[in-house]
């Protein structure tokens, strides 16, 4: 079946951090075939700059922005959350398990919890007003939008009025859950429809999986 067969099973084993698709499928919403398809994507991303089979931050940024030097607060946070071992790279197992949260069939509570950790910039267990302002500033900067400082303060203050129901100046995980239940659109970006059936979205992956299944 031509070049789609170029990555053999033996080559897979050589990739650092490679994990058995059966195990990954049992721990995530993905099927074994979908984990195989994700491995193709992983190989592409993890060899885009440094050919070591691990996703470095520059490679992650390149995939997100088509520019490895793009600095983005949120991409950094996502990378750090995917990098569970905190060793500066995303390994295959980390990639699959983290993406599993973004699967349409993943538990809503996992998506809400992931988003909370994402926005808890300093990992204190709370989203603080200063963090929220920092994130709004980052968003405005990347969007080339300008809002006066007064207006930004007003947006942040209003958000805290609505979300910080205990009125202690910070948003805890329970308050976050309640806030998201009132505003479900806040976690819309925590679901990637592409993942519903990644093997169909990427037909070349099906071809490779079929070859492997028949081996």
């Amino acid at each position: 079946m031509g070049c789609v067969c170029s990555t053999s099973s033996s080559e897979k084993v050589k990739t650092p951090g490679y994990e058995d698709p059966t195990i990954l499928a049992s721990e995530t919403p993905f099927t074994v075939s979908e984990v195989d398809a994700l491995y193709e994507l992983y190989l592409k991303l993890s060899n885009s700059i440094i050919e070591d089979g691990l996703i470095h931050k520059e490679e992650f940024q390149l995939a997100l922005f088509r520019n490895k030097n793009e600095k983005n607060l949120f991409a950094d946070r996502i990378f750090d959350l995917f990098d569970v071992k905190r060793n500066g790279v995303i390994e295959f197992g980390e990639f699959v398990r983290s993406l599993g949260v973004f699967h349409p069939n993943a538990a809503l509570e996992d998506k809400i919890a992931f988003a909370f950790r994402l926005y808890d910039l300093r990992q204190t267990g709370y989203i603080e007003k200063q963090e929220l302002k920092e994130m709004v500033l980052a968003l405005l900067h990347e969007s080339d939008l300008y809002l006066s400082d007064e207006m930004i303060e007003s947006i942040v203050d209003k958000t805290f009025e609505d979300a910080d129901t205990k009125e202690d100046g910070r948003i805890d995980e329970d308050e976050w859950k309640a806030f998201v239940s009132q505003h479900p659109s806040l976690i819309k970006n925590m679901t990637l429809p592409y993942l519903k059936d990644i093997t169909l979205a990427f037909p070349s992956f099906i071809a490779r999986t079929e070859v492997e299944d028949s081996e």
Partner: peptide, 26 residues
């Protein structure tokens, strides 16, 4: 521009850095 009517998290959720669908673009 609509941001004034949005809450801060709505604004933030529109960041390209949070749009992981870009990872799947060929």
């Amino acid at each position: 521009v609509a941001p004034v009517t949005m809450n801060a998290f709505e604004l933030i959720s529109k960041s390209q850095g949070l749009n992981l669908s870009s990872l799947f673009e060929k």
